[in-house]
């Protein structure tokens, strides 16, 4: 792994900032803008990389928790499908970040199907219960996601989010 990701990303950023950016024709706003964003993305990747696996684990843990709660309130067969996928995730020993993300998405898809099912069934109590669960889940998800992407500068509350290392463990 030598040179590691940190060294390779840092050297790319330096080259783009100190060599390529000054060489761009001053009137070429399109190229300057894309180059500035590219440098910003590389810098963000450099900072996120050590936590990428931990971030995917947190995403999966949170969706599993939501899946368990929704399955408890959703009637079969959708509820059973949610539970099956949640249990499958619990039993699996996924090791790669990509596998964790794929599992998160599989569970997310069945939860979404269950939400639609509950809405269509028309049981007001179930609907309100599931709405409350999803909104609570969003409370966890948004803090994690917005802390992760705070450096884009697009979030009006970016200064309110904790450092990412306090939310997820290092690889």
């Amino acid at each position: 792994m030598t040179p590691g990701f940190e060294i390779r990303l840092s050297s790319m950023i330096k080259a783009l900032e100190q060599v390529v950016l000054p060489a761009v024709e001053p009137g070429n706003g399109f190229a300057t803008e894309q180059l500035a964003i590219t440098i910003g993305q590389l810098e963000m990747l450099r900072l996120q990389w050590p936590y990428a696996h931990g971030y995917a684990e947190r995403c999966l843990d949170d969706i599993v928790a939501l899946g368990r709660s929704v399955a408890h309130h959703a009637s079969s067969p959708t509820g059973d499908a949610v539970m099956d996928s949640v249990l499958l995730a619990g039993e699996s020993d996924a090791s790669s970040t990509d596998e964790l993300i794929a599992q998160r998405d599989r569970i997310g898809n069945v939860i979404c199907a269950a939400i639609e099912d509950i809405a269509i069934q028309g049981d007001e109590h179930k609907w309100r219960t599931v709405a409350k669960l999803v909104i609570e889940h969003e409370g966890l998800a948004h803090e994690r996601n917005r802390a992760w992407f705070a450096r884009t500068g697009m979030d009006p509350q970016s200064s309110e989010w904790p450092p990412i290392q306090t939310l997820v463990r290092q690889n």
Binding site: E33, Q34, I37, T38, G40, Q41, A141, H142, N145, R146, W148, F149, T152, M154, D155, P156, Q157
Partner: peptide, 13 residues
């Protein structure tokens, strides 16, 4: 594409 992927996380807001 690079701008769109930079802006995408604003969806979380």
């Amino acid at each position: 594409d690079v701008l769109l992927s930079w802006m995408a996380p604003v969806g979380h807001v």
